[in-house]
Computed example of a mutant assay.
Amino acid sequence: MGRIFKKRTSVDEALRLFLERISTIKKTEEISLETCTGRVLAETVLSERNVPHYRRAAMDGYAVRVSDTMGASPSNPVMLQLSDRVEEGTSTWVHTGAAVPEGADAVVMVEDTITAGNLVEIRAQVYPGRNVGQIGEDIKKGDMIFEEGHFLRPCDVAVLASLGLDRVKVFNKPVVAVIPTGDELISRQEKRDVPPPGMVLETNGLMSSLYVQKWGGVPRYLNIVPDNPDSIKRAIEANLDADMIILSGGTSVGKRDHASEVVAALGELLVHGIGVSPGKPSALGIISNIPVVCLPGYPVAGLVSLYFFVRPGIRKLAAIPEIPEPILKKRLATKISSKIGYVNFVRVVFEGDKVRPLTGNGDRVLTSVAKADGYVLVPENVEGYEEGEEVDVFLIE
């Protein structure tokens, strides 16, 4: 018999207990710039060069000496000789990004000029540095570019490339072992046209693995383990080299639910039974300093645990900075009912400038997530929301 829920822990308390037992990975690796988006820097980056390293034209036009443009205007243009170099009375064509020749201290935009043969008519006065990017204008040698712990985005990678870097040191991604359990599961590799009654294709492990990858981890997607305590124990022990373990299924209180008991026997069961709907049977534990998340077998309940516990767990393991989720303010097209004492995860779809809760919101119906645009979290002390009320909507992706 599986362990009976002795108490229900709030989502916030469960997450606090879980995260305070997780240590950030300190192992690092050097990787190419082409593969470092979404990784976390394991070193502070200082610039060893100026960017740009030369004076460059900021506009298409003519490089000139400022003194040669004094008083120039459309009604009083100045005529300069076109030349390969800039000196008194001469000008040189430059395109955007080109080096500004010696002797020139400004660029006149092409829009303020008229050419005639080997002469250019300057129709605007410029001042020193006009339309010229100076050496080190973007980055100066010795500047601190990014600190250790910076989360790398594509625009950041472009900055690193401008410094002449090819590789950077980053923290290792956490390896997450995903162990699907259940006598009723059939591997997709062994699937038949339609499984026999009482059997289902294994999809929760696949979903968990893909979310692990999306959130910055490396999934180790294992074969199905039967509902047997010894089998589950062996699967866990074989993966204690991972940084996190996810057990999918076997978290409730039935005769075939052994996940929480095995975790308790091998390590410490922190929480079993969480105040979230769907997702109450979720369990959290620690085995040999490795965080373990036990997901309910019902798909939506499992997904809720992935969002609430696996994602923040991966972020702490990988030292990924907290990035606020985009929240939309929308009014309800119909009311939302919820259970007091639980955080309710309610899937919604956009309907014009409103949102409508999806029907068939049970924890067995995964399509209620696939069809949803977002979700509303109803706090544990709130008994739903009325039609027309404004709510916070979190995007599914």
Rank of each mutant, 00 (worst) to 15 (best):
V346R: 08
V51A: 02
D243C: 04
M144H: 05
G133M: 13
S305N: 09
A57D: 04
L303K: 14
T96H: 15
G89S: 10
S91F: 08
P357K: 13
V45G: 05
A177R: 06
L266P: 04
R21N: 10
G89W: 08
V349E: 13
G103R: 12
G164I: 07
A158G: 08
V382D: 15
G38A: 11
K214C: 08
V212H: 03
P101C: 09
K255D: 13
E48T: 09
F171V: 02
K7R: 12
E88W: 10
A372Y: 04
G285L: 00
G362A: 12
A301I: 06
V170Y: 14
D183E: 08
E29W: 06
A301R: 12
G254D: 02
E184F: 01
E237L: 13
G164H: 07
G182M: 06
V107R: 05
A370C: 12
R49D: 04
N344P: 04
P226C: 05
R123F: 15
K141D: 01
S75E: 06
K335N: 11
T28W: 03
D12G: 07
R153N: 03
K233F: 08
N239C: 08
S67C: 13
T334N: 03
I336G: 01
E13C: 00
M207L: 11
L303E: 04
T69Q: 06
G61M: 02
I327G: 02
F308G: 01
I4W: 15
E383Y: 15
